[in-house]
Write a protein that binds this DNA or RNA. Sequence first.
DNA 1: TAGGCCATCTGGTCCT
DNA 2: AGGACCAGATGGCCTA
Length: 243
Amino acid sequence: MPAPLETTCVSDLDCSSGSGDLPGFLTDEEDCARLPPPASASGSPAPALRGAPGLSGASDVAGAQDDEQERRRRRGRARVRSEALLHSLRRSRRVKANDRERNRMHNLNAALDALRSVLPSFPDDTKLTKIETLRFAYNYIWALAETLRLADQGLPGGGARERLLPPQCAPCPPRPPSPTSDAESWGSGAAASPCAAAASPLSDPSSPATSEDFAYGPGDPLFSFPSLPKDLLHTTPCFIPYH
DNA sequence: TAGGCCATCTGGTCCT
DNA sequence: AGGACCAGATGGCCTA
């Protein structure tokens, strides 16, 4: 539970807390500065509290007490105004910050949607989660780069790119779900990761690709839905650092 | 009902 | 000083 907004200068003794940036009202500090020191502090009544001309005795004391009470009331009202303004100022800044943060996250989500739109689609239109989108994009880029590399090596038969990457297929062959957690598979490095074996669509990255290495798709038993997306994304290369 | 995913709020930190 | 970025907290929704 987030801590509630703080207020300052809540104590009668606290007249130094910063609220001086709020224009148009008497701050606590100013309020305190204008008031004479308390009688208890000086040991004698402040000069301003001394009797007005024509007053003496008990009425003199009563008048001083009234003045002190009035000053306390004014100081209290000023403090309330100060705190209310400070609170509203903080509140408005917080609301603006929330708005910016919301907008920032919307932009981030829009970028993720744009990324999803350029990734190979699944037949059932399953929307990838955020983490799945990032993993899939990573794998997809890897597969495309690998495809280009193999094509540049002059894979026999021609049309290597078309054979390697059917348009409706995921870039990497799905594997049975890994028993290890994401954190384990992501945090242990590419080589040691259970994903490492699947990091390459080839059983051996150094060996030439065969059509079987990439031959999967809607006709492939491994290409079964709806389990594919999550299985694929849980078991395909996981090189994005996870912490 | 537990767990996953997500949106939002919030306070802290860094940068301009 | 204000904005961007980040991570933690929280609550809602959905699914197995």
